[in-house]
Computed example of a mutant assay.
Amino acid sequence: MPIALLKFPNDLLREVFRLCDPFELYRLSKCSKQLSQRSITLRETKNWKITYWGGNVITIWVDGSNYNFNQTDNPEDYFQVTLGRYSNYMDIEFPNGGGVDLFFYLLDTLGICIVKLLEITFGTVANVSKVAKVLVDRNMDIERFGIGNVEEVQDVVNFMPMLSQMNITKEFNCFLNFPPDFHFKFVKYPRKINITDASWFTIDQLLDCTCVRIELENSSFNNHDLDVFLQKWKMTGTFPNLRRLRIQSDLIDNQSPILEMIPPIQTVNNPMIRVSINGHGEIVDGVRVIKDDGAVGWLKVEIGDWSELNFLIADPADTVVEEISDDEDDDW
């Protein structure tokens, strides 16, 4: 028997909308324009988050479960739902504007205020650019932003000024190899950056960085650059957020000192010392470094085919310092 939802009082209709999952709200919004408008007017702002890779799938995250809206051209499959333990799927007809139009339809219809992930993948630079521009205009937070190793390198170069306007709060991941003459400077930093081709990331940017975690591969930093950074870190009040730094560079060598130590820099203890933050990002046999305000850092610099600096700043609240035997290290 059909239910005349539009005849429900607003308080009751609002409760109906509150109990719906993303698929149910979407289906209700498609029943009629009037019901769609009522659902937008009466629905509450939710803590749901949206994810978009620029293609034909958009995901809504709800308390650890993913609701995936998949594009289909077969009318017989419209609104077909497959439920899983953590991921659920519904086939729908995308609007004429494709994934970009659907992204904003879901954003408004479902009352979403946070983007969980926005990522450029192969062939999606144009779509992600359109979405990013509107998110900037709406001053919305983007928790994580990623750039894959795509072929449209120049299109990504052209996109990068938009990155300076985006409010990326948690994480920036970049796996793209930019041209040798590429330059970019962050205006603001998220909590974490992970760049696999960091030749464009300068020492000036590192000295200004406010991240909690920094991971830079294929960088152009040499011993002098790293020494300048660590000497600044030792000063009271500098880099108050930093907990973890990992820098790989072919220019790290054994010719000049870092903090008055010639690489490789590590202790040779028996038993060995392993330091980790909540069980992650461990450093084995690092050298203890003391900041002027008494904070403790653990530094390890390795040279060879993969020259790398690892630095961890300890906090008694979450840092574990433990002894490990040679046998345990081999097993680990």
Score class of each variant (00 low, 15 high):
residue 279 G to C: 00
residue 68 N to T: 11
residue 194 N to A: 09
residue 330 D to P: 00
residue 169 T to V: 14
residue 268 V to D: 11
residue 128 V to H: 11
residue 217 E to R: 11
residue 17 F to S: 02
residue 256 S to Y: 08
residue 164 S to L: 03
residue 72 T to K: 07
residue 161 P to F: 03
residue 227 D to R: 01
residue 205 Q to R: 13
residue 25 L to Y: 00
residue 200 W to D: 03
residue 41 T to W: 05
residue 225 D to Y: 03
residue 115 V to Y: 05
residue 293 D to A: 04
residue 85 R to N: 14
residue 163 L to E: 12
residue 327 D to V: 07
residue 197 D to G: 08
residue 262 I to F: 13
residue 31 C to Q: 09
residue 126 A to V: 06
residue 134 V to K: 14
residue 257 P to T: 14
residue 21 D to V: 03
residue 109 T to A: 07
residue 203 I to M: 11
residue 69 F to S: 05
residue 152 E to G: 01
residue 326 D to Y: 10
residue 23 F to A: 09
residue 324 I to H: 14
residue 321 V to S: 15
residue 78 Y to R: 08
residue 113 C to N: 15
residue 234 K to T: 11
residue 120 I to P: 11
residue 2 P to C: 08
residue 50 I to V: 13
residue 231 Q to H: 12
residue 199 S to A: 10
residue 109 T to F: 00
residue 157 V to K: 04
residue 106 L to S: 06
residue 296 V to P: 04
residue 253 D to R: 12
residue 86 Y to W: 12
residue 135 L to T: 02
residue 211 C to P: 09
residue 33 K to A: 12
residue 55 G to L: 13
residue 170 K to Y: 05
residue 181 D to R: 10
residue 330 D to H: 06
residue 177 N to V: 00
residue 9 P to M: 06
residue 311 F to E: 02
residue 208 D to V: 01
residue 173 N to Q: 12
residue 292 D to T: 04
residue 68 N to C: 14
residue 85 R to E: 14
residue 325 S to Q: 08
residue 99 G to H: 05
residue 81 V to Y: 00
residue 314 A to C: 06
residue 82 T to N: 10
residue 125 V to W: 06
residue 40 I to Y: 09
residue 154 Q to V: 01
residue 252 I to Y: 03
residue 248 Q to N: 15
residue 327 D to T: 12
residue 34 Q to W: 08
residue 190 P to I: 02
residue 67 Y to T: 07
residue 109 T to W: 00
residue 246 R to D: 11
residue 260 E to G: 12
residue 210 T to S: 15
residue 295 A to I: 05
residue 61 W to P: 05
residue 309 L to K: 01
residue 329 D to P: 02
residue 53 W to M: 12
residue 292 D to S: 12
residue 253 D to Q: 09
residue 44 E to Y: 02
residue 201 F to P: 08
residue 297 G to D: 07
residue 208 D to G: 12
residue 315 D to I: 00
residue 100 V to M: 04
residue 63 D to C: 10
residue 73 D to R: 13
residue 132 A to V: 02
residue 223 N to H: 04
residue 55 G to I: 12
residue 17 F to V: 03
residue 230 L to P: 03
residue 68 N to W: 03
residue 29 S to Y: 05
residue 1 M to D: 13
residue 89 Y to E: 14
residue 144 R to H: 10
residue 9 P to F: 06
residue 81 V to F: 00
residue 145 F to N: 05
residue 300 K to T: 02
residue 36 S to A: 12
residue 24 E to C: 00
residue 72 T to S: 15
residue 17 F to L: 14
residue 332 W to M: 05
residue 141 D to T: 09
residue 29 S to H: 11
residue 221 F to H: 08
residue 5 L to R: 06
residue 33 K to W: 04
residue 218 N to H: 10
residue 219 S to P: 06
residue 128 V to M: 01
residue 243 R to E: 14
residue 23 F to K: 04
residue 134 V to S: 07
residue 121 T to N: 13
residue 3 I to S: 04
residue 27 R to N: 03
residue 121 T to G: 11
residue 181 D to F: 02
residue 19 L to D: 07
residue 13 L to D: 04
residue 142 I to F: 02
residue 79 F to K: 06
residue 154 Q to W: 00
residue 68 N to M: 10
residue 304 G to I: 02
residue 321 V to R: 15
residue 205 Q to I: 05
residue 54 G to F: 09
residue 90 M to W: 06
residue 22 P to F: 01
residue 251 L to P: 03
residue 257 P to F: 00
residue 150 V to I: 04
residue 79 F to V: 00
residue 10 N to T: 04
residue 226 L to A: 02
residue 255 Q to H: 14
residue 253 D to L: 03
residue 143 E to D: 12
residue 165 Q to T: 09
residue 331 D to T: 08
residue 274 R to C: 00
